[in-house]
Every structure is written in structure tokens, then in C-alpha cells.
Amino acid sequence: MTELLSKFDVTGRRESSVVRGIHYTTDEERQVYINDGYIPISDEDYQHYIGNRGAGDNGTGYIRDQQTGKPVSAPPAPPVETTEEPTANVPETELAVMEGMVDMQGRIAALEAELAKLKGGK
């Protein structure tokens, strides 16, 4: 079986992983990764961390438990807070132009109806 080394942040989230035979081949190269904070993990644990075993109990994936060293469900995502309703900030000049266009459309419709009457329509 191929050895996997992974590095985790302080919250237990996997930051990166390296594989023997791809990223390193000698014990000296392996030791460089170990010195940088990488630790050996099993393939099954790796499958949890990369999402191949689902998204955990909270839908946020898996993190490494500091006590057991095993994957556990990550905490739920924090709620998104909105401070206020979004409002459209349309400049007064643009608003006046838009209102004028709406008014013009009404006038065009009235003129078309009058023209239809003059041509003998209804």
C-alpha cells in the first residue's frame, strides 16, 4: 500500500497531501515533509478528508480530531448574517429617464390607437 502524508491546519482541516513514489521516494525526502508538519494517514482517512465518504453530519466535510487523530464531522457552517435589505441605488437622472420612457410608451400606444381609428379600424 502507498504511504500518504497529510498536513492539517489548527482546526483539523487538511491543507495538502503527498504520496510516496510521486512526491518523495527516499527516507530523506520523506523526512522533509515530516519536518514541515505532515503526518502519515491511512487511505480510508484520506477518503474522508477529500469528500469520498460524504459530507459529514453537518454537510461541511470532515476534519482531523486532535485527540484521536481520526476524521470527525466538521462543525456546521456559521449562519450568514445580513445587515439590511439590498436597495437599488439608481441615480435621480437615470430614474427620470426611465420614468420618461414609460410615459412615452403610454403616449405611443395612445397615438397608435388614434391612428388605427383614423384608418377605419376600431
Rank of each mutant, 00 (worst) to 15 (best):
S73I: 03
N89S: 13
K70Q: 15
H23F: 11
E81G: 09
A109H: 01
T83Y: 11
K70P: 02
H48D: 10
L115D: 11
P78Q: 10
P79R: 09
K117V: 07
P75S: 04
I39G: 00
P86A: 08
N58Q: 11
R30E: 10
G56E: 07
E44P: 01
V18G: 04
D27W: 00
G51Q: 12
D45Y: 06
P40H: 08
L95C: 08
Y24Q: 01
G21Q: 05
E28W: 05
G21Y: 06
V18R: 08
T26P: 00
K70S: 06
A55L: 11
P71Y: 07
G106F: 10
R64H: 04
G54N: 07
T60F: 01
N52H: 14
R64F: 07
Y38T: 03
S42Y: 04
E81R: 14
P76G: 09
Y38P: 00
T82M: 12
D45Q: 09
R30P: 01
H23R: 05
I41T: 09
E29Q: 15
N35Q: 01
V32T: 06
A55M: 09
V72D: 00
K117W: 10
N52C: 05
R14M: 15
G100M: 12
D43W: 01
I41F: 06
E99Q: 15
I34C: 04
E94I: 15
A88R: 12
I34A: 02
L115P: 07
T83I: 13
S17D: 04
I34S: 06
D27P: 04
I22D: 02
E85S: 13
R14P: 00
V102T: 13
V72N: 03
T82E: 12
M98H: 13
R14C: 11
